[in-house]
Design a protein around this nucleic acid. Structure first.
Length: 397
DNA sequence: CCTCCACCGGAACTTACGGAGT
DNA sequence: ACTCCGTAAGTTCCGGTGGAGG
């Protein structure tokens, strides 16, 4: 057994291309963040008061995915923590993973070493426990809520309101909240009280342009890959492809990492431009696979109905999707879901980026949603679907 | 200018489940 | 044993609604 692992490690150590793969992973916080100096300075200025044990203002951070919001926040907080670890503690929570008030509270409490039952206890009780825990901490707690828009969209802003109000129940311990969002319009959903309290300070992260991305990649790659394994053309290509996606640095890093993996698997010593294109497809396929597997059965069936329907017609509307879905469900001997639910599923599929759905008005012929899908995703779905017996039978039959 | 289609989408409720507290 | 709780998936009910066609 262990020799299998040894073999893998050995091969990893003897990599032809990688020097340190970690550096290219999305959650890696680099020692330098080029082109984000301004944001670092501003966030740092807001948060230095932590070292004097004073509560900093709450901060709101806007910016699209892969513009360095999370990295800068972690970077600044880590740096300050090194200089005064007793004066504050910080808790990072991604609200995409912890997407309910209950989970958020549980996560905060758990950072103090206590365990909280997964379920069974009321949220109100959790607030009580939180206050108790925080009181014992006796220092400032910086709460970083990443992708804060996802909770608010699902569960409203009450959690935020209550968290900002916790300060009033405390004497020595204080909460500071850093809210990170990539949806700029999201503040409009907030209660004015929450809005003003949370937005004491605001920071905007603009997207990187192609040359900035190229610079970022070049620096990272120097650490991550061995010399002579990559050309400037390959870097430029990754940067250009990522720049097309609104300047997403995460995407650029993924591209170069997967390109390197592909080159390595092919036994090559150098990354070619073709590897980058292959990487792009592979990333897409992996994403689709992951999303698809986490979907409930009926959602998958609706997706197949959409794909199959689009093979017949140029465009599809909700009613047509529902009809096709119903036929499939019947063929499988399953009870159908309501059209209302299918409408929601279409929205969900749109949200995770598997399809495009947009509401259209066809005057006399009603208001509905028009659904489309890209060829890449259709192909990726086709490859995943054959692993499920039921789905495969519908797919081919 | 009005009608009316084919849905949209909010809200409240249901069911099934795993677990807590007492 | 019994009651209470959150989550996930789904249902029922129902008030909108943009614009082509009369």
């Amino acid at each position: 057994m262990s020799d299998i692992i040894d073999g893998i490690i050995e091969r990893a150590e003897n990599s032809r291309i990688f020097r340190n793969k970690e550096v290219l992973r999305p959650d890696y916080v680099p020692g330098e963040l080029p082109h984000r100096e301004e944001q670092i300075r501003r966030l740092g200025t807001i948060l230095v008061t932590l070292l004097r044990k004073e509560r900093p203002s709450n901060v709101f951070i806007y910016g699209l995915t892969g513009t360095g919001k999370t990295a800068v926040s972690k970077f600044v907080l880590n740096s300050l923590h090194k200089r005064g670890s007793n004066s504050f503690k910080y808790v990072y929570i991604n609200t995409r993973q912890s997407d309910t008030p209950y989970r958020i509270l549980a996560d905060i409490i758990e950072t103090s070493g206590l365990t909280v039952p997964f379920t069974g206890i009321s949220t109100a009780e959790l607030y009580r426990r939180l206050v108790k825990v925080v009181r014992q901490e006796n220092r400032i707690i910086v709460l970083v809520l990443d992708e804060i828009d996802t909770v608010v969209k699902k569960h409203g802003d009450e959690v935020l309101y209550r968290l900002t109000r916790i300060n009033e129940e405390l004497s020595t311990s204080k909460f500071t909240i850093i809210g990170i969002t990539n949806d700029i319009n999201f503040v409009d959903l907030l209660d004015p009280r929450v809005k003003s309290s949370l937005g004491e300070e605001e920071l905007v992260f603009p997207p990187y342009n192609a040359s900035e991305l190229e610079d970022i990649l070049s620096r990272r790659v120097r650490e991550a890959l061995k010399e002579g394994t990559y050309s400037q053309n390959v870097i430029s290509l990754c940067a250009a492809l990522a720049a097309r996606e609104h300047g997403d640095a995460r995407r650029a890093l993924d591209l170069i990492r997967v390109s390197a993996e592909i080159a390595e698997r092919g036994g090559k010593n150098q990354i070619a431009e073709d590897d980058v294109y292959l990487a792009r497809n592979e990333i897409e396929r992996d994403r689709v696979t992951e999303v698809l597997e986490s979907l409930p059965f009926h959602s998958k069936l609706v997706l197949i109905a959409i794909i199959k329907g689009l093979e017949q017609r140029k465009q599809l509307i909700t009613g047509e999707v529902y009809d096709i879905y119903r036929r499939y469900a019947k063929r499988l001997g399953l009870e159908s879901i309501s059209q209302r639910r299918v409408s929601d599923i279409i929205n969900e599929l749109d949200m995770v980026g598997l399809i495009n759905a947009k509401v259209i008005n066809r005057g006399r012929y009603g208001k509905t949603k028009e659904v489309t899908i890209t060829k890449e995703i259709r192909d990726a779905v086709a490859k995943v679907v054959i692993n499920d017996e039921k789905l495969a039978s519908v797919w081919s039959g």
